[in-house]
Design a protein around this nucleic acid. Structure first.
Lengths: 201, 201
DNA sequence: GTCTATACTCTGATAGAC
DNA sequence: GTCTATCAGAGTATAGAC
């Protein structure tokens, strides 16, 4: 497989990854087939395997770029900003990620659900380190009495759980809400209230 | 396939479903193989198919019994009880379900994540109806000024999201917390505080 | 009721022409 | 670089002996 160099190679690699995201996020790794990905991508199956050495490699490429996107909103939480504003803004960014990148959210969720067989290292490394760093920031804010005292790590978990729910359980959310609802708009309202009450004291 | 009648048939059916829960919840439907299930169950592959007509049927049997278990904690929320106590108790029961039945939680999550291909009807029927009923109860409590006014459906979503997170993202939770933590005990504490603040006014 | 052997399909990957 | 054809292995399901 050639490292993407020319414009055409880059473009085809992108097309494949885009199609693969579609299929993997909907069916999981085992459920997805190269035939499906090839069809969505509008390429032949052997042509897929000209750009990537294996199905495994396509999946891996998706996961690698995923984690960074996923952690960016937390990275941006600024120790020098106003505590409540910063936590709220983080929640907002994470909710927008769910709204704008639901396929990525589901790909991530499926991976973790199945025990993170292809992401263990990243979870135990980068992700854990970042949460530890931000937990220290939150603890400082709590020590200064600027937000209510809470377990900082579980506070982060709560933001993950509440925002990702709307992407990962989309089918259920829409079924329960019925017609004429904008799940993410309503979630934004609800979570704003929730964290306002939780962080105040 | 015989409808389970004798004691042996019932016992073997149970053994198969137990093994299937193990494998399906860890690998998803496509990822699971009859070989794996047979091995966990300690039976031969054709013997599995003597008790159930197909892999599909085993999976279906699991899902059917699952939804009831899953909705029971919400069913028990009593319109005549004390509002804050009832919501708290519901959250507790749901968290205990995550702690005691993580495989069921993951089986459910995988199904919904993939668009609920084998559960759509139940989601749109029983589940939606139950949530609608309990949302009315919550709204009444809010009208009476006994809990803070919030979107009742999103309040239910929040309980689902926050409790299921600990089962579904178990690997991530444990990686981030590190050694020497009891995720569910800490979650219980955290969620108690969260809902106390959210529901009060 | 349970097993061994096997039929048949699907799917990931390769060969080789163009 | 892309395609057609095809192989090899995995996996669901069945046949039939015991």
């Amino acid at each position: 497989m050639p490292r993407p160099k020319t414009r055409i190679q880059l473009k085809n690699s992108e097309t494949i990854l885009e199609a693969a995201l579609d299929v993997f996020s909907a069916q999981g790794f085992r459920g997805a087939t190269l035939d499906q990905i090839a069809e969505v991508a509008g390429l032949s199956k052997p042509n897929l395997l000209y750009y990537f050495p294996s199905k495994e490699a396509i999946h891996q490429a998706l996961l690698t770029r995923l984690l960074d996107t996923w952690l960016d909103p937390l990275r941006e939480m600024d120790a020098n900003g106003d505590p409540v504003t910063e936590v709220m803004a983080y929640m907002r960014r994470k909710l927008e990620l769910s709204r704008d990148y639901p396929r990525e959210s589901r790909l991530f969720a499926i991976e973790i659900l199945q025990g993170a067989p292809r992401m263990r290292a990243a979870i135990e490394g980068d992700l854990t380190a970042l949460v530890a760093e931000k937990a220290r920031v939150l603890t400082t804010w709590m020590d200064q009495g600027r937000i209510a005292r809470l377990d900082p790590v579980h506070l982060v978990f709560s933001i993950w759980a509440l925002t990702q729910h709307y992407a990962d359980f989309d089918v259920q959310v829409r079924a329960v809400l019925g017609e004429g609802h904008d799940p993410y708009a309503e979630a934004g309202q609800f979570l704003e209230t929730l964290y306002a009450r939780l962080l105040a004291h």
